[in-house]
Structure formats: C-alpha cells, structure tokens
C-alpha cells in the first residue's frame, strides 16, 4: 500500500484495510504457486464488504465528520459533471472579483434547464489553495447573489450544493463585508419565486453554508454534516480545548439523522457503502433521482406558493417554550 493511500484511509477503516491487505497477499501467493484460491478470496471479500457496511452503519459523529471532509469526496463540480448536461459555468460578481470557492452556472438536469450554485473544494493541494479550501469571500456570495437573481428573472429552478468549512475569516473578507454579503443572500433567497433545492453534499459550515442553503427542500447525504460552528471551534470555546472536538461533534448534533429529527432537512440521501467517495457515480445517481423527483413535485406550485412555502418552512424552525401568562 502506498503512502498516499494511507492518508486517504480513515482510522476507523483500518480493520477493513487489514483484511483487504490479506486478500491481496493470498491472491499474490496463489498466483505465485499456481493454486486456485478464488473461493477463499471470494469469501474474504464478502467478509470485508460486510465489515465495511457494519463500520459505516455505526459511525460516531466525529467519524462522520471525517468522511464528510474526505479529500476524495465528490465536490460540486464532480456531481454537476455527472448528473447534468450542457454545463455552462458563469463567473464574477461584477464588482471586480471572481471567487473560485463558489461555482455557479447553467445546466440541464434531464430536460430542465437549471441554475446551479455550489461551494467548491479543491481536488488536490494546489487546487485547494486556488479554491481557498471551499471557504468563500464576500465576492463569492455576491456572485451567487447575481446568479440567483438571474434564475428568478428567467424562472429557472435553483439547485445548490453545500460543502464548505465556513465563510473565510480574513481581514479582506471583513473589509468587504462578509456579514453583509451572507445576510443579503439569506434575505434574497426568501424573495425568489422559483423552486430551490439545497443539498448538503459534504461539510455544512455555519453561515457560510446557509448563505446558499435556503430552499423549498433541503436534502443531505448520509455522511454529510451541518453545524452552527465547527466542532473544533466549539470545543475551543466551550471546553477551552480543541482536542475535545469529538465531544463537541456529539453535543452539537451535526449528522444527517440529527437534522432530520430536528426537522431542519427533508430527506437523507443514502451513500454507497464506505462513503460517496468509494462509488461517486452511484452517489451521483442517487442525487440525480432525488433532485428530479423533488423538482417534479415543486413544479406543481406557482412562484408565489414556492416563496410562501419556503417562508413557512423556515419560520417554523427552532425550539422554545410558550409559558402561560
């Protein structure tokens, strides 16, 4: 096994990796000695698959966080290229900048022209630096704003893909009004009279995620996470120790199952065994089918109704007591 593969292997996958290593050895040995070990290998492979299924069915929140941040996890552009036709990327905020951490453009999903917006993480170190690790600056949110307005004007459904550690915390970002850029997107998304479907594909990092995360439907991949603050940040503040991130990850309730229970998301998209990165095409098909199904449902509503439904959906979120006076 090469060193780079080691890095891509998550700690809790070690037992499966060990088993797969053994299968490799047996296969090599069998070939060398010209022995038929296919039956034994088949059994071991089935066992490995079973083990992986078992491990992934009981991931802890912090383990899910690792899957959601996996360097090979499919990104917005990976999904767009698999599920859409006629992708035409659109650039720029028209105020002097184009932020590569958010991508947007026109495409066809089936026969339907749509507007697509998503955070974009890099596929390797160089790309990640270019993409700022998927952490947008105000220019990114303003590009998104321009494209969502465009979608509204031309009646195009808006599909967004969420995958960011958060909005970028930097001096320039603050000087250019990071807070204002996010806030304006939140407000504008409630005005659009088009169907909006948001999917959390990886990491949903706080306000930076929400800024393209208000829709009529909120979907979430099985191992994606969505949180008000990164578990590391939360641990540093509340436990005064960033190493307590596993405890914070559990306390914050960041998994898809948690969010479904809290009525923040509408549907969990199942992932291939071992996570979306192990079978990206399979994950993409699941995504495409879900998007088509929800788009079809939403197409029955008028622009006004879509806007009203979205308002009511978010208006209900939260938990508080109404004491009798």
């Amino acid at each position: 096994m090469t060193k780079s593969n080691d890095r891509l292997l998550l700690e809790f996958e070690q037992p499966v990796a060990a088993l797969e290593q053994r299968i490799q050895e047996i296969r090599a040995l069998a070939e060398e000695n010209d022995i038929d070990a296919s039956e034994q290998i088949r059994q071991l492979e089935a066992k490995a698959e079973e083990l992986r299924r078992e491990i992934f069915s009981q991931l802890t929140p912090v383990e899910r966080l690792q899957v959601a941040r996996h360097p090979r996890r499919p990104t917005t552009l990976d999904y767009v290229q698999t599920i859409c036709d006629d992708w035409f990327e659109l650039h720029g905020d028209r105020h002097g900048q184009d932020d590569p951490a958010i991508v947007g453009g026109l495409a066809k999903l089936g026969e339907q022209p749509v507007m697509i917006l998503g955070h974009q993480k890099g596929r390797d170190t160089k790309d990640n630096i270019h993409r700022n690790f998927g952490m947008p600056n105000p220019a990114g949110y303003r590009k998104a704003l321009r494209l969502m307005e465009h979608a509204h004007r031309f009646g195009l459904p808006l599909l967004t893909f969420i995958d960011t550690p958060g909005a970028y915390p930097g001096v320039k970002a603050e000087a250019e009004g990071q807070g204002e850029a996010i806030a304006t997107n939140l407000q504008t998304l409630f005005r659009l009279e088009i169907p909006i479907i948001c999917t959390v594909i990886g990491e949903g990092g706080s306000g930076g995620a929400l800024a393209i995360g208000i829709g009529n439907r909120i979907l979430m991949f099985e191992h994606a996470v969505y949180s008000v603050i990164s578990p590391e940040g939360c641990a540093a503040i509340l436990w005064k120790d960033a190493k307590k991130a596993p405890q914070a990850a559990a306390a914050l309730r960041i998994t898809a199952q948690d969010l479904l229970q809290l009525e923040v998301i509408d549907e969990i998209l199942p992932e291939p065994v071992g996570g979306a990165h192990r079978a990206p095409l399979e994950a993409a098909q699941t995504l495409k089918q879900a998007l088509l199904r929800h788009l079809k449902e939403l197409s029955a509503l008028s622009g006004r109704q879509l806007r009203e439904e979205r308002y009511q959906k978010f208006r209900r979120m939260g938990a508080f007591l109404e004491l009798s006076e």
Partner: peptide, 26 residues
C-alpha cells in the same frame, strides 16, 4: 453570534429573521 448550545436550530434563526425582514422590506 449564534448560540452554540442550540446547535443547528440557532443557525436557522439567521434564516428566520432574514425571512421576516424580507417581508417588511417588500
């Protein structure tokens, strides 16, 4: 900022307040 102890529900208050303000503006 958002109250960490209410997790994702706190984040959604950003959406809720912005939604109401959109109507006020309209």
């Amino acid at each position: 900022g958002a109250r960490m102890q209410e997790g994702i529900l706190s984040l959604m208050q950003m959406a809720k307040t912005s939604a109401a303000l959109q109507r006020h503006r309209d």
